[in-house]
Amino acid sequence: MNRHGTQIAKCGLAVLSVFSMGLMAPVQHVQAQVQSIYNTALPSVIRVAIRPFNNPFAPILYVQTIGFEEYCEDVLPNEWVPSWNQQALEAGAVAIKMFAWYYTLHPTTENGWTYDVDNTVNYQKFVYLSGTPATDAAVRNTWNVVYTPNNGEILPLEYRSGWPGSANWTFVGSNVMSQWGSEYWGSVANLTYPQILNLYYPVYTLKFI
């Protein structure tokens, strides 16, 4: 046996002797820290991969770095309808912000480009400088609001279109918000945006930052 082998054997015997004496310290498993609103700051910018014509299958042309609040303002009118009830827009603004915040913490590299989100429905539809007075106000009115599990973990608030003129009961309690459903509950049922969010994400909590 070579020199290194002998040393390994001696080390092995030493370990066995410690085990036999019951002196081996217990193994401690270190858990990754949860990224939460308590240890993670709201982003100041976000990197958006731009695909031509907002085509989710098109190659990336470039990556645009934009202010995080401006990004949310340029997404909301393209995911929610600006003429919808203001409470529906504010529910949408919170969902868009939480979705984007999560992905700034989980960037992607594709064909040499590193980005947080792209400008298509792969993530959220983004059109530069497309904000409207109503949707910009919804973003501003909810900017200090987050919607998270009780531990404050930053998770994406998923949403889907749903069906016009309907309560979209299929989505209620599913942790996926219906965009058309938010409009129904805001305009027909006169729910506030926290109430709308609670319909879809019942185990989440409204918090202020």
Rank of each mutant, 00 (worst) to 15 (best):
M1W: 13
N2I: 03
G5V: 03
Q7E: 12
I8Q: 13
I8C: 07
I8M: 12
A9M: 13
A9R: 15
C11Q: 14
C11K: 13
G12A: 14
L16A: 14
M21H: 11
L23H: 11
L23M: 14
M24T: 11
A25K: 13
P26G: 13
V27Y: 10
Q28T: 15
Q31T: 11
A32P: 01
A32M: 10
I37T: 10
N39Y: 07
N39R: 07
N39P: 08
S44L: 04
I46E: 09
A49C: 04
A49G: 10
F53T: 08
N54R: 10
L61E: 15
Y62M: 06
V63Q: 06
F68G: 11
E69S: 12
E70P: 00
V75L: 01
L76K: 06
L76N: 07
P77T: 10
E79A: 09
W80H: 04
W80L: 11
P82D: 09
S83T: 15
N85Q: 02
N85I: 07
A88T: 12
A88K: 08
L89S: 06
A91D: 04
A91I: 00
A91W: 06
A93S: 14
K97G: 10
K97F: 07
M98R: 10
A100W: 02
N111C: 05
D116R: 02
D116T: 06
D118I: 03
V121Y: 10
Y123C: 10
Q124S: 06
Q124W: 05
Q124D: 06
K125I: 12
F126R: 08
V127F: 03
Y128W: 05
S130E: 00
G131L: 09
G131V: 03
T135P: 01
V139P: 06
V139Q: 03
N141C: 02
V146L: 02
Y147P: 07
Y147H: 03
T148A: 10
P149C: 08
N150M: 13
N150V: 15
E153F: 01
E158C: 06
E158T: 10
Y159T: 08
R160N: 13
W163C: 09
G165N: 14
S166F: 03
T170F: 10
T170M: 06
F171Q: 03
V172M: 05
V172S: 05
M177C: 07
Q179P: 03
W180V: 02
S182K: 04
E183I: 00
W185I: 00
W185D: 09
W185P: 00
G186L: 09
S187E: 12
N190F: 01
P194K: 05
Q195Y: 00
L197A: 06
Y200F: 14
Y201K: 09
Y201S: 08
K207H: 09
F208T: 15
I209D: 01
